[in-house]
């Protein structure tokens, strides 16, 4: 019986001793990495643990991501405190929208603008075919430039194959 009591005591003491021991830094690190991997936004972050102090390095998408990362790390067992050195990535400039002329329709108001613009330019006539303005006649180089600029301002596709140079 005495032997059994002694053994029990040893087992109990060992259990108490082991569970009372603080987790190893390497185990904490492994646990943190597992926690972070669960979130695909945080894959570019790295963590080092030293005496229970977790230091986060790497890059986060934004401030919210950085705060979330810190919270996740702080929640891992054994982490005493967190040093958040995570850098927030520079915002990626949104690509400019496509030029408006891509989707412009040749409506009556636009046709009127074209007529208004061509009114003062001699020797040119316009017909509208589908979504295009077909120009014909003879114009000077200066007037041709004006016409093209005006058509571009009105966002109208132009067919100038019948527009000749004035001799």
């Amino acid at each position: 019986m005495k032997m059994l009591q002694l053994l029990t005591g040893v087992v109990l003491a060992t259990t108490l001793f082991v569970s009372g021991c603080k987790p190893k830094d390497s185990d904490i690190k492994a646990n943190i990495e597992t926690a972070l991997k669960a979130d695909p936004m945080m894959t570019s972050t790295m963590v080092d643990v030293n005496d229970g102090v977790a230091t986060i390095n790497g890059e986060c998408k934004d401030d919210a991501c950085k705060a979330m990362c810190e919270k996740t790390v702080a929640g891992v067992k054994g982490v005493k405190s967190v040093v958040n050195n995570c850098k927030v990535a520079a915002p990626v400039a949104a690509p400019a929208a496509a030029p408006a002329s891509v989707t412009t329709m040749l409506d009556d108001a636009t046709k009127q603008k074209v007529m208004d613009g061509l009114k003062d330019i001699k020797g040119v006539t316009v017909e509208f075919e589908g979504e295009k303005a077909v120009l014909s006649g003879e114009v000077t180089k200066v007037d041709r430039m004006k016409i093209m600029q005006m058509m571009a301002s009105a966002k109208v596709q132009t067919d100038v194959s019948k527009l000749m140079d004035k001799k």
């Binding site: 030029p99 002329s101 180089k141 430039m145 301002s153 100038v160 194959s161």
Partner: peptide
């Protein structure tokens, strides 16, 4: 534009600047 596409004849550019 006029240099690249002489007389801007191709009608392949809409320069809405």
């Amino acid at each position: 534009y006029n240099k690249i596409d002489p007389n801007m004849a191709s009608g392949d550019l809409m320069m809405n600047i």
